[in-house]
């Protein structure tokens, strides 16, 4: 689990960078709006609308993420996924990946631990993809901004293709390993 320290480091580094970018964005916005004063109203209206939509759900989403990170520790997820087999593992991978915790790079050390534990590759890929793409808090924000139909359609399609991707990557990697072995055997 050595990757977790690295994850913290990325996060701390990220906040400092974000504040600098925020400052730069603000300065650019102020310059642009003082050159084009007639654009002030549309810019303010659009920004205010999106800010209100965001601030109404962001605290709730953060609370959910906090709850999951405390009540569902990473070690537990790794333990559960490591011992499941068959197609069930792929769907469990998706389910575990969809639990709300952290950005994608936080999942790599977990995936690496799973790999060492001998978990199925299809399960790991499904877990990573679900973590990246269909996490619960993410789906909530998608629901808020893009609506129910968009969210559900993308969710269903993503689950289907993530399963397909997991199985095909596992197949490709296993095939490559087999070929390597055959080459090795032939050379002996």
């Amino acid at each position: 689990m050595r990757g977790y320290a690295k994850e913290k480091e990325i996060q701390r580094h990220g906040v400092k960078r974000d504040i600098i970018i925020l400052g730069a964005t603000l300065i650019i916005a102020i310059i642009l709006l003082s050159i084009f004063p007639d654009k002030r109203t549309p810019v303010f209206t659009a920004s205010r609308k999106f800010f209100i939509e965001m601030i109404l759900i962001l605290p709730a989403v953060m609370i959910l993420m906090g709850l999951f990170s405390v009540f569902v520790p990473k070690e537990m997820i790794v333990k559960h996924l490591g011992k499941t087999a068959g197609i069930k593992a792929v769907f469990l991978g998706i389910l575990m990946g969809a639990l709300p915790t952290g950005p994608l790079y936080a999942a790599f050390p977990m995936a690496s631990a799973l790999l060492k534990k001998g978990a199925k590759i299809s399960c790991i890929i499904a877990f990573l993809s679900a973590w990246a793409c269909i996490k619960l808090p993410q789906e909530m924000i998608e629901l808020q901004f893009l609506g129910f139909k968009f969210m559900v359609t993308r969710l269903v399609l993503t689950i289907i293709f993530v399963v397909v991707m997991g199985i095909s990557i596992e197949w490709l990697i296993k095939k490559a390993i087999k070929q390597n072995q055959e080459v090795n055997n032939a050379s002996i």
Partner: peptide, 28 residues
Amino acid sequence: ALIVALKSFFHILPTVLIIIILIGLLLG
């Protein structure tokens, strides 16, 4: 969990503000 939530809220806040300003500029 609430402490974690509060921390991540302040971590994400600058990015949220950046995106909101960018959306305003984009649409304006």
